[in-house]
Design a protein around this nucleic acid. Structure first.
Lengths: 185, 185
DNA sequence: GCTAGACTATGACGACTGTCATAGTCAAGG
DNA sequence: CCTTGACTATGACAGTCGTCATAGTCTAGC
């Protein structure tokens, strides 16, 4: 299904931000990239670039939340694998040229850094009940959830930086083992 | 010891890049920030902004490498604690307003992204022998080293983003346990 | 067919960017 | 004293940025 021009711009913003960061993503380039006229930008997004960035983050976050919620029903390991798979596909699809747009926003000090921080907290918060439901004590679940989000966000940067799946797969395997041990006994 | 103006600019660049990213760090601001005249920038750094960014990365990397090399003699857990401590102090010193400058460079798509990737590989490569020396099989050591670098780089972003030590300490504790188990038996 | 509203096209604005040239200051060495 | 070289001060350059105003086009509903 072909996206309407508006969401095409939102998706394009997410992609470009993941590839070059928000500061290096200009609305002119984004317009050209998505085949939309520059003038349309401020028609669709009267809030300007900030609104565009924020919507791009929401767009990415919703995707991940959906993946997490769906796989979470299958238990902690399933949720973890889905989370890992999400980033693996993400990296492959961009040929290791993009990292997480949320992380890009969070790294640069923009007015949209607040929302970025909420996205991370949301992801971590979604993982906690999945872990406790599998028998992990709450306090440990909180920690493990931060570890999962942190290590995978970090691993995506490493993998992109090395232009190789190795760092991501290394992190994936180790985290998988850790969660397995935390869940089983 | 008061730093000479040149290294003051390098250190200042590292700080500003960690706080706002390289794109949002202008040489004018950097000059003002370090009390140096704008004209001096291209006297000290004829390679322009790129050279400045690269030297800032080297400066940060050298520090971490020193910490890692020194603590590495005390074994894997000591090296890990030193690595963690490095980032904890880093966050506290900036009042949770800075994240790793190397990661900032790596996420933006600049001409200096290559060196950034080497820094990460260097850190990972330094951890591997420390782990094997403590009895961890090479293949696993490679993976664990990536996990340590990835998770801590990620945790620094999380902690800064949440403006709280919680994510970093959570990751630190879990990784510590994992390394302990990998080393002992 | 005509009108209202959604969208496009174009071009401008002020502010900022990296970069550099030029002229000035100043301390060390002969 | 006077010259040389390191450093500073100032200001300009071409380009890009986000933003927006204005005018034009197109399409749905009457």
């Amino acid at each position: 299904m072909p996206l309407d021009p508006r969401t095409k711009m939102v998706a394009g913003a997410a992609q470009l931000i993941g590839e070059r960061g928000v500061g290096a993503t200009s609305v002119r380039e984004l317009a050209k990239f998505t085949g939309a006229p520059l003038g349309s930008t401020y028609h669709y997004f009267p809030g300007g670039k900030d609104q565009l960035v924020e919507e791009a983050m929401v767009w990415v976050s919703r995707r991940v939340e959906k993946v997490l919620a769906r796989a979470g029903e299958g238990g902690a390991l399933a949720a973890l694998d889905a989370f890992i798979g999400n980033w693996r596909e993400f990296l492959i699809a961009s040929d290791y040229e993009a990292s997480c747009p949320i992380l890009a926003v969070a790294t640069e000090d923009t007015t949209t850094a607040g929302p970025a921080s909420e996205v991370f907290k949301t992801w971590q918060g979604l993982l906690v009940p999945v872990l406790t439901r599998d028998g992990v004590p709450l306090e440990r679940a909180e920690r493990l959830a931060w570890l999962i989000v942190s290590s995978l966000e970090g691993a995506v940067v490493m993998a992109r930086s090395q232009r190789s799946p190795v760092p991501l797969e290394a992190v994936a395997e180790e985290i998988r083992g850790l969660i397995r041990d935390a869940v089983k006994p």
